[in-house]
């Protein structure tokens, strides 16, 4: 009964959403939302004198384009500051491990929580779920203290200082910590919904947990893994706060976003470079998004009730 009802609801929604009026509204909203970005895009190709004297829409009557902003941003370093292309490497060095590490941990944890029977399983899951409410900003300083000085209770050393500040490691670990609760939650919901019959059949055939995980769970979870990977990738790519804090202000390990934030001069001069910088920095996320779009939508739905 409930199932039938839902199907009819879907039909109703579908007809409503595909009416010409709905399409028209969608197009209008999409256009309105894109205009500022488009303006920024046009601006990034204008010379700085033009940017300061007239609005971007004047290009239609008075076209004036240049690649100066892009060449300056991409290839021109300033003294000790390397050009933006250099920071791409740093960003990749941060983003790739920061995506792989949490997913690796989360997929194991999700499998264990979903399919192992042990005491306090639900409590553990809810604790992890609840950890999502802790704001990242609250934990910045304690975490930084932990990385730089270790953990001491009185004179007893619980965690020694590893001397990892100023390397990529604190950034990786911080991204991992902040990403794990949601990763475990999403993957758990997906893995828990895999058909029990499949897993029981594998057990009967003599598969142990490792084999089961490797040959059944992992291949079946690829969509969920991919969708979370996109999320985590985009978050870490766009992150400024974590990199700024845990990077210890070192230029050698600063990612694109940190550089972008200080691209304008001390008193806000040279801001035309920001327009080009912004478009350079979104190239990769946009490519990733378009390449993996279908997983992205599935990722948004992961964890929600399935029809």
């Amino acid at each position: 009964m409930a199932r039938k009802l839902r199907k009819r609801d879907v039909e109703v929604v579908k007809t409503h959403l595909s009416s010409p009026w709905a399409s028209f509204t969608a197009i209008v909203i999409a256009t309105l939302w894109t205009i500022p970005t488009f303006g920024l895009f046009v601006t990034s190709f204008r010379p700085s004198t033009g940017i300061n004297s007239s609005g971007w829409w004047t290009v239609f009557t008075n076209p004036e384009f240049t690649f100066t902003n892009y060449t300056r941003v991409l290839f021109e370093g300033r003294g000790a500051t390397p050009p933006l292309s250099q920071y791409f490497l740093n960003t990749f060095a941060i983003v790739i491990p920061s995506t792989i590490i949490p997913i690796t941990i989360a997929i194991f944890a999700a499998y264990a929580i979903a399919w192992f029977n042990f005491k306090g399983r639900n409590f553990l899951f809810f604790t992890i779920f609840a950890l999502q409410v802790i704001p990242l900003q609250m934990s910045l300083i304690p975490l930084l203290q932990l990385f730089s000085g270790g953990l001491h209770i009185g004179s007893f050393t619980v965690i020694p200082s590893f001397g990892i500040t100023g390397t990529f490691i604190p950034i990786w670990l911080a991204h991992t910590m902040f990403g794990l609760p949601l990763a475990i939650f999403l993957l758990h919901n997906f893995i828990a919904q895999l058909p029990r019959e499949l897993i029981e059949a594998a057990r009967v055939d003599g598969a142990d947990h490792f084999k089961l995980f490797r040959q059944i769970i992992l291949p079946l979870s690829v969509p969920a893994i991919a969708s979370f990977a996109i999320f985590q990738f985009l978050w870490t790519w766009n992150d400024l706060l974590v990199a700024l804090t845990f990077g210890g202000g070192k230029r050698e390990i600063a990612p694109l976003m940190v550089r972008l934030a200080e691209m304008t001069g001390t008193r806000g001069g040279d801001w035309e470079l920001l327009t080009a910088g912004a478009f350079v920095s979104i190239l990769v996320p946009v490519a990733v998004f378009f390449a993996l779009q279908r997983y992205f939508v599935r990722g948004l739905l992961a964890g929600s009730v399935k029809g």
């Binding site: 000790a80 910045l140 300083i141 975490l143 930084l144 203290q145 990385f147 730089s148 000085g149 500040t165 100023g166 700024l244 804090t245 210890g248 202000g249 070192k250 230029r251 940190v258 934030a261 200080e262 304008t264 001390t266």
Partner: peptide, 23 residues
């Protein structure tokens, strides 16, 4: 000498000092 300029100086300095990675 490593001159490290950032737009977030005033917000980040207390964080770095408290966090034990003071410049």
């Amino acid at each position: 000498i490593n001159w490290n300029g950032t737009a977030e100086f005033e917000a980040q300095l207390p964080v770095r000092v408290e966090g034990g990675t003071a410049p």
